[in-house]
Design a binder for these strands. Sequence first.
DNA 1: TTCGCCATTGTGGATTTCCGCAAACACGCC
DNA 2: GGCGTGTTTGCGGAAATCCACAATGGCGAA
Lengths: 204, 204
Amino acid sequence: MSPETHIVDDDPAVRDALHWLLQSRGVPSRIWASPQEFLDFVDRDLRGCVLLDVRMPGISGIELFDHLRTRHCRLPVIFLTGHGDVPMAVDAIKNGAFDFLEKPYSDNALVDKVLLAMATDAELCTREDSIGVVEVNLAQLTAREHEVMQRILAGKLNKVIADELGIAMRTVEVHRSRIFEKMNVRSAVELSQLLSMLSGKFEG
Amino acid sequence: MSPETHIVDDDPAVRDALHWLLQSRGVPSRIWASPQEFLDFVDRDLRGCVLLDVRMPGISGIELFDHLRTRHCRLPVIFLTGHGDVPMAVDAIKNGAFDFLEKPYSDNALVDKVLLAMATDAELCTREDSIGVVEVNLAQLTAREHEVMQRILAGKLNKVIADELGIAMRTVEVHRSRIFEKMNVRSAVELSQLLSMLSGKFEG
DNA sequence: TTCGCCATTGTGGATTTCCGCAAACACGCC
DNA sequence: GGCGTGTTTGCGGAAATCCACAATGGCGAA
């Protein structure tokens, strides 16, 4: 899926103007006449960014934004609004919108924002890819292995873990070994670091 | 230093009105007639939140905000503005402002925001305290211990570390032991987790 | 110069980890 | 029933960690 800017606006004139502007600047874009249409299309693998009119019939831009996030779509969203609404802008940004622009907008400014959003998304994807690998590996662990891993990450000795689970130390060793193998690490420290980036998803 | 709401506004009428409002609701507050006055007073241990007028003579609210952050003051800042300026609000929030309110504001809404900001600050402090402890412990490590720790966190074996540093394994063991002692942990895993919260300061 | 802190190393032993080889039992699927 | 997967365990040995006891040399402060 190559990255695109998804323009969602019910006004054909605005829609096409945006589409034309972006195309003319070499930014691949795609238009959607209604929020629902776009919503039906999105999946978590979508790449690029979203240009969203705040006021639309049916689902508002803000609501569409919420739906996107609920569906684990992390695409950067740039809102476009006709008349300055500070509380709404503040709320949108607080909720993780990428930007909030007032009409009339400067063409250059808008294109810059879009490019920035797309770059941000691309960067985020790189990170999420490595996170994805970790999550896939994690999913391969069996229930018992999870129990053991949890205790390894608590810094407990094999002996203690064996006691807690009521099994032999040798068994814990086997689980430990399998965990490392499946998670593709060679020490508990590496494992710990790998999992720490799961909670700090949006950090460095 | 007990938590206070710091009101910074050049207009005596607004200033006093805010002060009175907060006092009447039992929120300890303090007024500052000029940004510079407040700036001269702040230090990193200040607690509470800041209520800031955007437009002030000399240093603007936005600039004051930047100065605060530059000085490592993490206090939540609520902006107050006369006429809705969306780009400015968006920028402020993106830069980490706590909120951005338009005048005229509802008394209740403002008090709520202030209370929320103060609660947020209190919570943040708790976290930063524990981070502070880690940093203090970290500062107690000698240069050599840092070198060894770095390699421990890379998951290297004592033998390898000894080779890299050109010293005996026994020496590495001693350093390792001292590091654990000073950092108050009992395993490399705990150490790794402790340090992971240093980079992810603003996470859970 | 004496004292304290840091870095260094050794000996020797207790404990733990890591791992190959081997095997038993349960459970679900075809 | 046969097969695969997951869980369990034992044996025994190599390697690594942890630690108490003991000691040397450098370097800066009092």
